[in-house]
Structure formats: C-alpha cells, structure tokens
Design a protein around this nucleic acid. Structure first.
Length: 496
RNA sequence: UCCCUGAUAGCUCAAUGGUAGAGCGGCCGGCUGUUAACCGGUAGGUUGUAGGUUCGAGUCCUACUCGGGGAGCCA
C-alpha cells in the first residue's frame, strides 16, 4: 500500500504503533472467526527472529474468502497493514480495507493434507528425513540462527585478540594427519585403474574379482599422488603460526569413521587456534576464555532462541550456562584424575571399563569427573605419551608425579557433551620430534615440511581443536549432533 | 563395527495369531479477538522390503534396509 515500508518481522515487531508496514514470509498458523463479518488471525514468520507476527485480517479485503481463508501452514505471503498492540502488549498487524490493508499470496502449499510439516511438535527423527523443510520449524530455525551467531562470535573472538584467520586446505596430500580414516579424493576411473607396470600382484590393492594386477599407480591421478579430504587443519596452520604468531582456522573437516552416535559426523566444522611462544597452560586459558565468550554471545545476542531452548529442549539450560560462565574451569593432571577415579571405585562407584594409568579414559570416566565429581567443566592435562599423537610435546620425567612419560596434552570436558576440545603444546625440539615419529613407526619423510618448522627458528607453540557442532550441542542443549548442522553427513546418509 | 530396540494413515501412536483404530493435521460445516483454540461431520492404509510357518500373520520365524538408545573411535 502507499507509504508502506517492507520490514523484516524482527523489525516489524518493534515498529511504532500506527506505522504502515509490509511483511513478507510464510504462514505458520491461521485461525478464523465469523465475528464482525469475518476475521482471520494469520501468524507470519520470516525466520529473522524466533517469533512470528500475527496479522489480523478483516473480512472486508477483496480476496478474504477466496484466498486468505485458504491459507495453510507455510504458504508464502506479503501482508500490508498497520502496526497495533495486542491486549498482551506485543505488536501485531491490522489488515483491513479501510486503511489499505492487503494480503498477497505468493505461493500456496500443494496438497496441504500431505505437507509433512505441521504446526505441532514433530520428532527430530522424522524431521531428519526432511532436511530441506525442517528449518521452517521453531527448533531448526533457532538452531540455524544460533549457528550463525556462534560462527560470527568465533571470528570476533579471535579477530579482537589479534589472531589471523587462515584458510587451510580441504584437499590434503598428507595422509598422516593422524586423526582417523580419510575420504579419498581422486579423478581416476575406478573401473579402469592404472597399475604400476611390472609390479607384483598385491592382494590388498586388487579389486574384488579383478584380474591380478599391480598396485594402483597414483602418479596418473589428478594431483600426481594420493590425496584425501582433510581430517584437521592443524599441521598446516602451525606453519602460519610460526610466522604470524597467532592464527586460527575455522572450516570443514572429514572423518571416514563408521561412527554411529549422537556425537559424530563424517563432515563437521572445527575451529583450530594456534599460538606461538605459548605453553599448555596458556593454551588452556585461551580455551576457557573462548568457550565462555561463545556462551556469552549466545545468551546476549539470541535471547529469544535461548529462551526457547531453555523451555523446550533442555530445562535449566540457561542456568547451567550461567554456572559455567561464573565458574573457573577445573584444571587437573591426568595422573590426578586416575587417582580420583580409583578412589571412586574404592567407594563403590561401578565402571564398565577398568581405570588404569596409561590407558585412555572412557566416556563413563569422563562423565563421572565432569558430571558427578566436579559438576563443572574440567580440563585434563598431561596425558601418557603412548595414547597421544606424535606432535605433542614430551614433558619432563616425573611431571605431576606420573609413573611414566607424559605429553603436554589437554582435553576440555563439559557436562552433557563430554570432550569438546582437544589440544596440546607442540613438540618444538626437532630431535625429540624425530624420535617420536620414528618410535611410532610413522613415515618420517612425509613430515619434511613440518620438521622444517623445527629446523628454522623453532618456537614453543600450542593450540587446540574445538568441534563446532559439539559446541552447538553444549550451548543449545540439542542432544543429537545431526540436528545442529543443516545437512548432516553420517554413514549411509548423504541424501541432501 | 558391536549390543539392545523399533518400523502400522501426512504426523504421534493403539490393535490376545481371527473384520486395521484413535488423537492431531487436511477437507466441509458450526462457534469464537484467536494464539498447541473449541464442537460436529468427512476423506485418508499393499502394516519398511523379501521370504517362511499357519486354515488364517500388523502380530510368530529368517534375511535385508532404515531409525532410535548404548558402546568403541574421536571433535
């Protein structure tokens, strides 16, 4: 209508009473009344905030009976009206002919009796099969806005602290990043693979039922060598750390593990900061500040969505996060954690797996520490070297009274989610690094550029990886990692 | 990958081995400044797939597919 301004719903809900506005979005619900010659309440939602805006449509507009009364959930509309206040105090939109009100239907919903998304609670399992439509629901709209909010907060946190954002490669020629099975990247014809001439037949490299053949000749592949999707940007980002001092990556990573749990994805996003001239203690302080910064951003910038998560997804969520904000994280040597668990067993606590110095803690042990014993986030530090990666810095013998060698590694454990961050101080001494690589039977030649960092102006440095989706779960209370990423990739699932 | 468990209307779920039902949603009508509205009517089904047992299978058995819970691996 003349003089009407198109506002997003988030703005229209705050517009001055009496202003003439247009909103554009999707119908959430429609309720009709025959009073006053026809009256319909149409809730319109455009995703810009949690709430929908109610349009009160009078029966005197031209297309009232022919179109407005046929609107069903998720029809798209443009609505012109005058902002007024509901009896309860919020804004709504009065749509009547006398003030030039109008409803224009942009798109109807075909076959509304089988349209799967209804204005009622759906199971997340069902919505997972409707990934292209589920974002239209309250929950997934809130999750999407929260993902954006936290993504921006991540960049802001590091930018404000002088970190540089580094784009590490998605395709990697290094098959020894050391964090799990990798997806192969190849342009070779899988039905006609090039073979190394004259090489003896090798059972492992032979296709089932294929004629005997030599190993695959990857020199014919796109990059002239074997390549994979990255499992971590860490080794690459360390190179930039050793020149720019403070850097971070934030990008997708890939694990070809057959993991079927509520906490694992084949494609997920990870934040990996790396700081030069820093030790494990400083690394853990960065991790704690980082998590608290994200919680604060969520609570202050998306109060509407957080209120919803608190009421409908996890009761007491906001209180839990407030507690995390106010409480210093508990730092604890691995060796100390083992003692606490042994004492717990002595007092009658039952675990499925044994507790023994030198073995990795099981989920149940981590849960006991963070949920029952300390009831707060816990940072475990200085793990036995035999259960950790080659690049972690070897501690001095006897650190924390440990019975054997430890490395400067840390895991941040949070109640509900478990391990959310894994990090370490990196081994900056070439001779010690080489000894570790050799000891673990890794191909030292592959690490030539990583070792160069220790040959040319080496510095102590440290970093960690935060699984973005795990942070999302921790902050929204959503229980399944598949529901905090738009299009989850898991074993046997890549439909969308 | 292992253990447990499940798959019935668009959705959430019932149905002793014996004629497949309800609520919500859709459609039609009534009522109502409503907001998970309410009342009446109505349409809607190859019971996940493939076999088997049985006079008879949604129900029992086998395999497979997919979902959920737990575990391992990890972020």
């Amino acid at each position: 209508m003349a003089g009407s301004q198109w506002l997003r719903v988030v703005d229209a809900l705050k517009a001055p009473v009496g202003s003439r506005v247009t909103i554009k979005g999707w119908v959430r619900t429609r309720r009709d009344s025959k009073a006053e010659g026809g009256l319909s309440f149409v809730a319109v939602h455009d995703g810009t905030c949690f709430d929908a805006m109610q349009a009160v449509v009078k029966g005197d507009i031209a297309n009232y009976a022919s179109e407005v009364c046929k609107l069903t959930t998720h029809c798209s509309v443009e609505v012109d009206g005058v902002v007024s206040q509901t009896p309860k105090g919020g804004n709504e939109l009065q749509v009547e002919a006398s003030t030039g009100g109008a409803v224009r239907v942009v798109g109807y919903v075909d076959d509304p009796d089988t349209y799967p998304i209804q204005p009622k609670p759906h199971s997340f399992e069902f919505l997972r099969e409707m990934q292209h439509l589920r974002v239209r629901t309250n929950t997934f709209g809130a999750v999407a806005r929260m993902r954006h909010c936290l993504s921006m907060a991540i960049h802001r946190f590091y930018h404000e602290r002088g970190f540089f954002y580094v784009h590490t490669p998605i395709i990697t020629g290094s098959d020894c990043e050391g964090a799990g099975n990798m997806f192969r990247v190849s342009t070779l014809d899988m039905l006609n693979l090039p073979r190394v001439h004259g090489a003896p037949a090798n059972a492992e490299s032979r296709m089932p039922n294929a004629a005997p053949a030599g190993p695959i000749d990857f020199s014919h592949d796109f990059f002239g060598k074997e390549t994979h999707l990255t499992v971590s940007g860490q080794l690459n980002v360390e190179t930039y750390c050793c020149a720019l001092s403070r850097v971070y990556t934030f990008g997708p990573t890939f694990r070809a593990e057959n993991s079927n749990t509520a906490r694992h994805l084949a494609e997920f996003w990870m934040i990996e900061p790396e700081i030069a001239f820093a030790n494990l203690q400083q690394d853990s302080e960065l991790a704690e500040d980082f998590i608290k910064f994200l919680i604060n951003a969520a609570l202050t910038e998306r109060a509407d969505d957080m209120k919803f998560f608190d009421e409908r997804i996890e009761k007491g969520l906001i209180q839990r996060l407030d507690h995390v904000l106010k409480t210093p994280f508990r730092r604890l040597p691995y060796t100390e954690a083992i003692k606490i668990l042994e004492q717990a067993i002595a007092k009658g606590e039952k675990f499925e797996y044994p507790v023994k110095w030198g073995t990795d803690l099981q989920s149940e042990h981590e849960r006991y520490l963070t949920e029952k014993h300390f009831k707060q986030p816990v940072i475990l530090m200085n793990y036995p070297k035999q259960i950790k990666a080659f690049y972690m810095r070897l501690n001095d013998p006897g650190t924390d009274g440990a019975p054997a060698d430890t490395v400067a590694a840390m895991d941040v454990l949070v109640p509900g989610v478990g391990e959310i961050i894994g990090g370490s101080q990196r081994e900056e001494r070439l001779s010690v690094l080489d000894a570790r690589i050799t000891e673990m039977g890794l191909p030292i030649g592959e690490y030539w550029w990583y070792r160069d960092l220790r040959r040319f102006g080496t510095v102590p440095h440290a970093g960690f990886g935060l699984g973005f989706e795990r942070a999302m779960m921790f902050i929204t209370g959503m229980a399944n990692v598949r529901d905090v990423i738009p299009f989850p990739r898991t074993p046997k699932n890549a439909e969308f």
